[in-house]
Each structure stands twice: as C-alpha cells, then as structure tokens.
Design a binder for these strands. Sequence first.
RNA 1: GCGCCCGUAGCUCAACUGGAUAGAGCAGCGGACUUCUAAUCCGCAGGUUGCAGGUUCGAGUCCUGCCGGGCGUGCCA
Length: 583
Amino acid sequence: MVHWATSPYSPSTHESDLQSGMQAYLTDCILSALASMGGAPEGFAPEFEQPANPDHGDLSSNAAMQLARHFRKAPRAIAEDIVSHLRDLPLDAARVAAVELAGPGFLNFRFADAHLANELQQIIAAGADFGRTTTGNGKRALVEFVSANPTGPLTVGHGRNAVLGDTVATLLEWSGFEVDREYYFNDAGRQMRILGESVRARYMARVSPDIPTKQIGEGDEILTVPEPFPEDGYRGAYIDDIAGELFEAHGGNLDTDDVEPFKRAAEKQIFADIEATLARLGIHMDSFFNERTLYDSNRVWEIVEAFREKDLAYDKDGAVWFKTTEFGKEADTVLVKSTGEPTYRLPDIGYHADKLERGYDLCIDIFGADHIATFPDVLDGIRSLGYDADKVDVVIYQFVTLIRGGEPVKMSTRKATYVTLDELMDEVGDDVTRFFFLMRSPNTHLEFDLDLAKEASDKNPVFYLQYAHARICSILRKAEETGLERRGTADLSLLDHPAEQTLVKVMMDLPDTIDRAAENREPHRLSNYLREVAVAFTQFYGQCRIIGEDESLAKARLQLADAARQVLANGLSILGISTPERM
RNA sequence: GCGCCCGUAGCUCAACUGGAUAGAGCAGCGGACUUCUAAUCCGCAGGUUGCAGGUUCGAGUCCUGCCGGGCGUGCCA
C-alpha cells in the first residue's frame, strides 16, 4: 500500500490493552534489570514479538541484540545478565512461568497458567466489545470511498472499493476513532451531460419509434442507437430502462430540447440503485458530498487566487497552470482548462481542504490503482494552502479480475460488458462477496474465482469461519438441553490442556490484530487472523470434549468455547459478514 | 523514458513493519465419522522468496542495478 503521508499513529501507541499489560510489565522488568547493569541508553524501549515457533515461548524480546552496540558486548552475554537480574527480581510467578535465553540472544518468556486464565476472564467480561481499543483516542476520522459518479450501476471494481472502505472505517471505529463515511460525487461534469443525452435519445426513440438510427463504435463494439444518441454515450440497458420509466410517467410530454430533466431523472434513479446495492452489502454512508458545492461557495476560485498569490499558479494558452514543478514534478499541470472548467485537481484540493476544516484528524481516501499518479498534486496543493497534509492518507487497491472456468472474464465499460456488483452478489452471495474482497492485501491484484466463490464447500474459506461459529452455537444449544449452565463463575484455571491454552493465546491477539489492521488499512490481516481462531477452536474441539466431562471442567470449557464464538462473531461483524447459528 | 505497485510451493496468497527452522488454503497422495455439526480433522509431499550485489549480529522485508508483469504518465476522472 502507498502511504503518501505519515499516519498519525506512533509506533509506541498501537499495542492493545491486553497485550500491552504483559508487555508493559516486562518492559518495566527489563528496564529495571538494565538499570542495575549500568543503565540503558536514554529512551530505550525493548521490542517484543510473538515467536512463530511455540518452542520460543509466548513473547520474545530482542533487547539484548538492540543493546549490543551500546554495551559493546555480545548479545548473548547481555541476555545472560538480563536473565539473571530478572530472576533476582523476581518475576511475578502469576504472570510469567519462565524466562529463557535462546538463539543469538533472545529473551523468551512463557506465560503462567494463571495469566492465561486471567486473560480469558477479561475476554469473557468484555464480550461483544472485546477487541476494541483506545488507540485512536477519540480522534475523528473520515473515510471517503466508493465515490462513483452516478452514471451507472456499481461494478465489481467498485465493490472492492466499497467493501474495503467500509471495513477500514469499522476497523478504525474499533480502534478508538470516531468515524464518518462519506461519498464524494460530481453531478455537473461532462460525464453527467452525456448520461442525460443518452437517456434523452432513448426516450425520444420511445416516443417516436420511427426515429432514425445510426451505428456507433467499430469492430465488435458496433451498436445501433437512435440518431440523437451521443457518440460516446452510455450503452447499458439501464439507460433504456430509465427512459422507459420516463415515458411511462410522462408519455411524450417531456421537452426534449432541455437535457436537464433527463439528467436529473437518471441521476436520481442511479443513485437509488447504488444506495440499494451498498445497503445489500451493509454499507451506509453518513454523508454525500457534492462537488458542486465547491463551485457554489466559490471555494475553487478562491484556491486559484491563493495559488496565484503564492506564485504557484499562472496563465498560459488560455488555461491556468499549477506549478507542480515546484514540488518536484517534471511538468506543470493544468488547473483550469481553457474552457474555464477546472480539472479534477482543483475541486479535489478544495474538497480535502473542506474535510480538514471540518475538524477531522484523519482523512482516508480509498482509490483504485489508476488514481495513483493524481494524488501527490492534491497533497501538495493543500499543503501549500497551509493545511496539514499528513492527516490525509490514501489507500490504493489493485484491480479485480473475475475468473470463471479458469479464464478471466473480460470487462469493458465502453462495451457495457462489465459485471455489476449486484450480479456478483446474486451469483455468489453477500457474505462471500465481502469476504473475497477482504481476504487479500489491497496491494495485490485480486483474482476473484467465481467457481470457487460459489462452491459452498470446504474450498471456500468464508464458510470455514462461519462453520466454526455455527458449530459452537450448536454446542451451546446442546449444553443448554443437558442443563449445563454457561453463565456464572467457572474455574478457568482448569484449562490446562495445550489445545485450550493455544486457543486462549490466539484469542488474546484480537485487539492487537484489529489495531494493526486499522493502522495499516489492511482488513485481510483480520480475516487471516480469524482463520487462526477457527483453526485453534477446531483443534480444541477435536481434542477436548465439553458435554459429559466433570461439571467444573465442562463449565470452564463451555465458557472457553463461548469466548471463541464471541471472538469469531466480533471479527466477522467487523468484516461485515453474518454469523449463522446453524449451517 | 519517468512514477507507483507486484514478483514467495503446481495455483491463489500470508509472513506481526529487520528476527530464530519462510507459512496457510486449494490441487496431489495416504488415513479418520457408534462421539458436542465430516461445510471437519490428522499425516505425507511440495522452496536458491525473479536475478546480481550492498547495508548488519540477522534480509522475503531496507538500499542500488538488472529481468518480468500490472497501473499510470491528458486542457478525462
């Protein structure tokens, strides 16, 4: 992913509440050990990570390696000193079961059983809120996404944008931001005029079926259209549908000299369709921002003047140019065309200035890869106007290819052979649609295999997660039938089976996973994580029985299973995917 | 030409922001249903992380140069 600007996070603030409890404790212990070894450099903070290999403990620090230069000693020797001082402290046996020295100088810590029981207790107590963090500290974020002009139905490409933006927004909410979702559009440009003309031509053909026709396009793109149809008009069937509705409502009474009513009717209908499509995906915008307001308020022209005053804009060939060479670009770019119409850059700058003036601490834009080159100008623009461009972050996602029968599905907006988002959802389902858009890094070109997506089987990863959830629900139902009470206190320290402990450890990672996914704007981190949870639960399920065990153990395991269900439910709800109780 | 992204198992992709033996799924092979859901599980096999250098205790990750693919590079958005 490209981050044009630094995120407002600092590396030291993204640890989750749960994990940071242990990390903060161990940090204190290590610093205390270092103090008696002659002191660490100012501002030193030991780094921690979770080892991939369970033999390396539950949490590992490379502090000794970080300090090799400072102490001018071998990392292993430093680590030995630290370990010996830690043992003298001593470490709290209720939290840390063991500290070991390994490899080139890693300090490996093993959690005590009591610590795991305590963590599980906290997960249960947090319930539907488990995973929420305070990282964002109540700062306000605006996520702008979809932002398709209302010229046609949303396509598969928009789908990735929509799902990505919505989920990034939800992730930010969970990590403590106050988030608004916004849709930016322009209903005044050339695109919309052609849309209106396209509808009008179809309407005229409805009124007068004998109207002359013509052919547009060439090769296999040839299409027969009514004479007034614009050369580069919109070809989709929805255009004729809208014309048909106008004809139903007004007969032949509409004044075809004026394109405005046709444009407005088209916009209204298409926007309604877009909102309905988004609603199917569970997406609801907080606001729609019409580019036109930037003209009505004169804002765009004020910006041109501001640039002129700063000597960043000048006239040439009848156009107004933006001195992007000042920001390291090879050439200046046009800000206002010789027709007097601004290029997209100008309103974009105005729009971002507006967002920042509305008090947002973080403005995220979700863009397809084809917008990559346009954005530096906007950032340079608002920066030179005195705004803090570091508050703006752009998420670029790569394109989607649909695969059917092992072959890419060819799509072209011109030929109107694109697959709409609605058609995709009709074919594979809403949950699968969301999940497939979220299971890969935004940075990678997404191959959406329709055959795989449709298959309601083990090949389809989304069902694996839902199945684990449904399975737990089934156990809870069964437990209720047999009179096993899930609520109340249970002795969680009875959970000493390796599969139980692994499951708890995985579940503990949810807040941290959410923070990282939010910080990096990478929802796939969460979907990958949820698979780990499902795997850990399934292994626990395979190795440990619940119903039929001794009552205190059964109750503890039932609470563990219920906590796993909650973790899956919380995660899936962030991804916007349903959590069936039966499958 | 220039800018950005990508290159990891046969295929689709991960890899906790520089850590220890690079991991999943699918496909392949071999096993497991008198059990709380088999839409499941267990095992086997699969790799010079595109190539070549560099930085350091340590590189898939950072730097440089190549090779290959995608997207841009507009008085379109």
